[in-house]
């Protein structure tokens, strides 16, 4: 039987959604696995989350330490090394926190490491069989990790079915006393909140969203003309902001804005999971991309294989003529 520990990140006293997704992931690893939740932080927020987790997990390990008021990855790593058995199988989210913590944790635990897992296919002897993507989601791979000396695994948020069972009747085990030294060579200073831009894309019903397919800065005008004709707002994917062609406040994705439009026009966007992570509320997605293999076509409702630079002006004219 596999002992699995699921690390529960939280903000303002509320666990992140991945807390509901670990049980499904664990079941796919080993149907007989026992899953223990691990929450680290301090004070009332921590207690609230630990309590909430007893609805989902039979056992909840709580690590309360003033130094953990902000989840500094270096400090959390030290705490986990003191509290968890080093041959454990530890699940974390593949997000900006998990990416900061997990690789170093795997080294210090002397465990196997597997990142950004989207599905599990069970155990085969010492090997855990998993599925992930490479090349920005263009291809899938089967991977196998020897977990006999433990494993640290990050799972992609949203890839596993959230549990509806919230009556586990679990209990909280306080392991704060196991934590020894919590000093770090990295010190958290502050969170600088994103600037508000000229346009609030989170309020728009229709978004004309552009990606690499726009090719040149001056082509953004083509998208703006389509958006004007449709009464829509222009948003974008990460490369457009990296190139400084549009403001950060226009970026859709986990590292940008979360939008909930009725209609999402993905123009020349390949459709990485980080981008799609910012598209919520199940909008009607129209994807136009000249690459018929673009991952966006797997999630879009309607797909069109065309060059957006030729397609958008024609669509603009047609919409104007209505």
């Amino acid at each position: 039987m596999t002992q699995i520990f699921a690390y529960i990140p939280f903000k303002n006293g509320a666990a992140e959604d991945v807390a509901l997704e670990y049980p499904d992931a664990a079941k796919k690893i080993d149907p007989s696995a026992e899953v223990t939740a691990v929450v680290a932080g301090t004070g009332a927020d921590l207690d609230k989350v630990a309590d909430a987790m007893t609805g989902i997990y039979k056992e909840v390990i709580k690590i309360d330490h003033a130094e953990l008021a902000y989840p500094n990855a270096e400090l959390v790593r030290k705490a986990l090394l003191d509290v968890l058995p080093h041959d454990a199988l530890i699940l974390l989210p593949h997000d900006t926190f998990g990416m900061d913590l997990a690789p170093g944790l795997a080294v210090k635990m002397d465990s196997a490491y597997a990142a950004d897992i989207v599905d599990f296919e069970g155990l085969d002897g010492k090997d855990l069989k998993m599925i992930r993507q490479e090349l920005g989601g263009a291809v899938y791979t089967h991977v196998a990790s020897d977990i006999s000396s433990g494993a640290v695994i990050t799972v992609r948020p949203g890839s596993f079915a959230p549990t509806e069972d919230t009556a586990a009747g679990g209990s909280v085990v306080d392991k704060s006393g196991d934590v020894k030294d919590l000093s770090a060579k990295r010190k958290f200073l502050e969170v600088v909140v994103a600037e508000v831009g000229d346009v609030d894309i989170t309020k728009a019903d229709v978004l004309v969203s552009i990606g690499r397919g726009i090719e040149e800065e001056e082509n953004i005008e083509i998208a703006q003309e389509l958006a004007d004709a449709m009464g829509a707002v222009v948003s974008c994917s990460r490369p457009i902001v990296d190139a400084k062609w549009l403001e950060k406040s226009r970026q859709v994705g986990t590292s940008g804005q979360t939008v909930k439009p009725k209609v999402y026009m993905a123009m020349g966007i390949s459709g990485s999971f980080q981008h799609l992570g910012g598209v919520k509320g199940n909008p009607f997605i129209v994807a136009v991309n000249k690459n018929p293999k673009a991952p966006i076509f797997q999630v879009a409702d309607v797909g069109i294989v065309e060059d957006i630079l030729e397609f958008m002006p024609e669509l603009t004219e047609a919409v104007k003529g209505l």
């Binding site: 597997a114 791979t141 089967h142 196998a144 797997q298 409702d301 797909g303 024609e314």
Partner: peptide, 23 residues
């Protein structure tokens, strides 16, 4: 300890309804 076994194309269902024909 971790190795890639192979690449594959998953069965992802139908995906988008592809619109075809002239522009």
């Amino acid at each position: 300890k971790t190795r890639r076994v192979d690449y594959f194309v998953p069965d992802l269902g139908d995906g988008a309804e592809m619109l075809e024909g002239s522009t």
